[in-house]
Nucleic acid binder design. Structure first.
Lengths: 131, 131
DNA sequence: CTATTACTAGTAATAATTATCGCTTAGAAA
DNA sequence: TTTCTAAGCGATAATTATTACTAGTAATAG
């Protein structure tokens, strides 16, 4: 809803360039080190700020678990989860794990897949009603 | 490979009980608060230590992204990832996103699913060769 | 060119998690 | 039961990824 003007600063441009020119999925610190080769006095805070902005702009993706702290699950057998993007609640899903897909990926790639995790995101019942 | 003797202390028992008796997926701090009702002087460090141990013992699951820092991806369109459990490298997978599954989950649950993420885990080529 | 305000570098603050340490205790063996 | 010892404990300090703050800088509209 808020319209925000974005400037294309040298810092932002170089950060995006670094990220576009690698096929790895680097950490903020790695990006910082690379960008320093171009802009030696850039600040790590600037890197974080721009990564966040670029993600909001839809230019890049941040791979984390969303929230900053771990969640613990008393159910030790593998199962899928649904996370509400509104209230951050996590629910178990009753649908069965797809075991076959691991083998399929193993066959189609040079990787040996041992397991997978699937996380669904959306709105839970409570948050749907409050809209 | 290392055989470790595990004792069933009161602290560990209560932590596991708390976690087994909830269907939420609590944070370490929430668990700490609950356990304090039983053992008022328990330390938060004890909670963390036991959660980690219980996970190693296969009693519970930790829901996080594995590593402690975020990874950033210059590719903004959704796709699946493979993470090597040996060297922590993250690779893009070329298999197409399954869009249909979101609707299926929406139909079968009270949730509105807007997106999902699937993460595969195993051994990458390099790490397979080093064994 | 000038005014506005997003942005930056540098640094301090925050917060989740882990490490340390001296004391305690679960559990095996005597 | 008593003894023994390493696993575990509480308290606290340390670590570390990330965010907040601030005074100065610079991108862009007019």
């Amino acid at each position: 809803m808020k319209k925000r003007k974005h400037r294309m600063t040298k810092q932002r441009k170089v950060i995006l360039e670094v990220l576009r020119n690698t096929r790895t999925h680097p950490t903020a610190n790695w990006i910082y080190e690379q960008v320093r080769k171009e802009i030696s006095n850039i600040s790590l805070g600037t890197v974080y700020r721009n990564l966040k902005l670029l993600a909001e702009m839809g230019e890049i993706n941040i791979l984390d678990f969303g929230s900053s702290y771990s969640r613990f699950d008393g159910n030790s057998k593998n199962h899928y989860h649904f996370t509400c993007t509104e209230c951050d609640s996590v629910f178990d899903l009753e649908i069965p794990m797809d075991q076959i897909i691991d083998k399929e990926i193993s066959n189609r790639t040079p990787f040996i897949v041992e397991s997978h995790r699937m996380e669904f995101y959306g709105k839970c019942s409570d948050c749907q009603n409050q809209m």
